[in-house]
Design a binder for these strands. Sequence first.
DNA 1: TATGAATGAGTTTTCATTCAT
DNA 2: AATGAATGAAAACTCATTCAT
Lengths: 210, 210, 210, 210
Amino acid sequence: MPKSEEPPKVTGARAAAAESKRRQILDGAVRVFARQGFHGCRVSDIADEAGVAYGLVYHYFETKNEILDTLFLERWDILLALIAEIDSREIAAREKLYEISAFIIESYRHDPDLMKVIIVEVTREANSFGRTHLAKISDAYDGIAAIVARGQSSGEFRTDVTAQFAALAFYGVIEQALTGWIFDLLPGGDSEYEQAKHFVVATICDGLHA
Amino acid sequence: MPKSEEPPKVTGARAAAAESKRRQILDGAVRVFARQGFHGCRVSDIADEAGVAYGLVYHYFETKNEILDTLFLERWDILLALIAEIDSREIAAREKLYEISAFIIESYRHDPDLMKVIIVEVTREANSFGRTHLAKISDAYDGIAAIVARGQSSGEFRTDVTAQFAALAFYGVIEQALTGWIFDLLPGGDSEYEQAKHFVVATICDGLHA
Amino acid sequence: MPKSEEPPKVTGARAAAAESKRRQILDGAVRVFARQGFHGCRVSDIADEAGVAYGLVYHYFETKNEILDTLFLERWDILLALIAEIDSREIAAREKLYEISAFIIESYRHDPDLMKVIIVEVTREANSFGRTHLAKISDAYDGIAAIVARGQSSGEFRTDVTAQFAALAFYGVIEQALTGWIFDLLPGGDSEYEQAKHFVVATICDGLHA
Amino acid sequence: MPKSEEPPKVTGARAAAAESKRRQILDGAVRVFARQGFHGCRVSDIADEAGVAYGLVYHYFETKNEILDTLFLERWDILLALIAEIDSREIAAREKLYEISAFIIESYRHDPDLMKVIIVEVTREANSFGRTHLAKISDAYDGIAAIVARGQSSGEFRTDVTAQFAALAFYGVIEQALTGWIFDLLPGGDSEYEQAKHFVVATICDGLHA
DNA sequence: TATGAATGAGTTTTCATTCAT
DNA sequence: AATGAATGAAAACTCATTCAT
């Protein structure tokens, strides 16, 4: 799924250029964070990678941390919106889960650096820093749990495992698959990604038993 | 499961005292890393928490990072040994997975700080630092995959989902449960832990379908 | 001989100011190194003496050591250029040696701190650090040796003492005179400096014999 | 010239062993100082090189600096005694200077590490630390100056160059030769050492002129 | 004497952030 | 908006020295 291209605000060439610098910085930051980690890079590395002047980073962002926050929120809000949209469709819960799985895996295929940053850096940061991210992550869990709960109500899913735990398990499987690709513990590639979308659902919905 | 208490080597009071200081430092580090994060604490915080002089930390460990490494390896090696031992038992694959799930969750109940550090801090370090940790993590995946593969051979498990992916999914579910408890996204407590041990296996082996 | 005053490059106030801060740091470092020794001072002493912020030192120089290197090379390159220039003149070898002796002693009169740093600190660093300085020092020896060799070819100098050794002896006498002044083992003062210029040549060229 | 072996104090085996440990430490320190420089080594390096326990170094020496002092003074006092002894002989001043030159160069041949330490580390240390060493160095200058002065009185040496300056020049030539060998700027070897003893006197007494 | 664990002050370097232009 | 020099707090790491045994 392509990056959600915000409609180019029609505010003249100047503003467009400015917006593009801001975008450059975010894009540079993704590459640098993915390569060196949030703590392993300097603000000047971001500026260099983005091809902008050092000081400009601070024109667009208050702190280094805000850059990470922005990257996370941009992407995560898309995910949250998608979960909500999918849940509103008239399809089986299993199908809904497949769509979410597919979306996240496609996101990784499309921009592995960004997903790496979100998974590796943001979660850990949540430990030391604000709870903002945790609330957002919780929102995703809740959205998925809502899908599961609806599946339970309709009789599609068993009810002894709580919807909350099921949601968390579902997300855990996907995140671990991404982690595997990120750290080269799992072979990556287009066919593997395609297969994984199905494996996630097969494992979580059908179980491993024969 | 209690920390593998090495038999108190009878090597005189001096050596014993020395070993205890080293232990104190490791124990202090766990608490500090859990509370403030690896990057959020200073070496002096570790020394203070451990009740030893600053310099002593560097007498026992080359770098701050080596402390984290040591904590991770101590515990992870126990996990690896356990996985191997469980796989050698004459029980169903499903039972084996339950034992592993139970062990990890018990580890968290017994020493949540340590598990928090391993899950939250080590993975991030794996990104920037050496691949040592990754190799160890990979070993765990492999051990679990071996169990699944044996289950597939015996006809207990389906074979369309690869053993490798199944192992990763299984571990992903457990890790996400721990993450949930760590960040208070999931209610914790003795009965929840007990329930979760079963949920993990129910989800992965039986699936969510009704 | 005055410090080679580079013509103030007309590059705008900003660049000029920047260059002047860098110069301030170097000048402060000379005073501090001379007073307390390279190892006896902190980088903050340099910053304080130069009247700049601590961090600015690291904006202009990678390490404390690079400051020392810069001071040495700036001056030594002037010496090397001078030796080459003097050798090209159409004067007696003895005159050439006098000019070099005079230049070095004048350098000391003009900026005793800098010469002290070069003689006292750089040599020691040459031991532990890179061979860069040694190569430069060797260049000076070679330049002087070339002058002596030409003197030998013309019949002005005896040939049983090698030019190489003679060069080294000549430089050794000068350096020891400076060392004497630096450590107050030899009375200093304008007339003493003037006298020493002649003594160096008298000793090396004519010998002590009656 | 062999290291002045102090007569083995007849105080029993224990004291002898103790003395030997102290000697071991000094000998180890010479090697370490020569290799890494005074500031570039740790006290533990000295202990390791000497093959003694860390703490023992502090049993025999108050500070790290005292070790350097001891090494310098041991050797320098021998030099001072020798200068005095030579001056009392009934030989030409030129012969006396030859003997001193020969002694110092032999000292270097016999124990280059020790001479390297004295020349490279002690003189520089004189800058930051006490004036003790300077007084001793001054004593050597004075001793040599006395020889020159006597040579001037007897009509052997010219009088326009002061005895003080001549002494300093003489020592400067020798020190620079040693520096050349130490830093590989001058080819070393037995025949070169032998030749240098003569070159020093030829240069200083006879001069370079044809 | 001999050992090596224990202490903690000291120092370089890093780097996020600010600011003048 | 854009630049990059300037600031200074922060922290890891070093290592001489002390001390208990």
